[in-house]
């Protein structure tokens, strides 16, 4: 079983590696998004509300920190969406070849995690070039959590909707959730925004960026969110793969 999972992951990674344009885009787009924001924002300070505390930070540092989860969420969401869409045919053939559902699920979750880590790594490299978070490790973990959360959401959207509709949804979701509703510049966020996917991980990330870092509750809640989404994703994946 272990060998079969490794083979499935290896084949997917090879397919991924055969698309140099995609790899180049995943490396370049974080530079473009985060870099442009850092370059464009005025040379000023800005008051942020993080965990009820107001801290004043440089606009450039804020842009680098805050655009990291936005970038990671957009890229991971789209990658997750297409990972699901493109692997469906292969998964059906693998199932006919005798693969169990749990083997396919494990292989796809492994690939999704790898994709999220690559996207997050590229974004972190750009962000860390522009500023130094108070707690680099916690900042990086929080960014990975954002990536995995949106990667799984992309997979779920990919199962439920077709490609065109899926891209529509993943075009709006990260921008609205993270850029608009998890923005620490906001002072009167509606209560319901705390249940959005990016809430806890973005909170943890901003906390790690500008305060002592490491609000354990946010990390715990963000990990819990990932587990819940993962469970939903696995159920939907299982049903989609086994029902054909």
């Amino acid at each position: 079983m272990q060998r079969r999972i490794t083979t499935a992951v290896e084949m997917s990674v090879r397919e991924f590696a055969r698309t140099p344009v995609l790899i180049a885009l995943l490396a370049f787009l974080p530079v473009y998004i985060i870099g442009v924001f850092v370059w464009l924002v005025p040379d000023a300070t800005v008051p942020l509300t993080i965990d009820g505390t107001t801290v004043t930070v440089e606009m450039g540092a804020f842009a680098a920190a805050f655009m990291t989860p936005v970038t990671v969420a957009i890229l991971s969401g789209i990658v997750g969406l297409f990972l699901m869409q493109t692997s469906q045919m292969a998964d059906r053939r693998l199932r006919l070849a005798g693969y169990q559902a749990r083997e396919l699920v494990t292989a796809r979750v492994g690939l999704l995690t790898a994709g999220s880590v690559i996207v997050t790594g590229a974004s972190l490299a750009v962000a860390l070039f522009a500023f130094t978070p108070e707690n680099v490790v916690a900042f990086s973990i929080a960014a990975v959590l954002v990536g995995v959360t949106y990667g799984i959401l992309g997979v779920i959207v990919g199962i439920v909707l077709n490609r065109l509709s899926g891209v529509y949804v993943m075009l709006f979701a990260p921008m609205v959730d993270i850029l608009m509703f998890q923005n620490p510049l906001a002072t009167e966020s509606p209560t319901w925004t705390t249940v959005l996917p990016g809430h806890f991980a973005t909170n943890a990330l901003m906390d790690a960026a500008f305060t002592s870092g490491g609000n354990f509750n946010d990390f715990l809640a963000a990990s819990g969110y990932v587990l819940v989404l993962l469970s939903i994703g696995i159920i939907l994946f299982y049903r989609a793969t086994m029902s054909d």
Binding site: V21, L22, L25, I78, F82, V167, L171
Partner: peptide, 12 residues
Amino acid sequence: PRELEGSLVLVI
């Protein structure tokens, strides 16, 4: 002309 790459570029 690839959906993933094209979507990434257009979304960004």
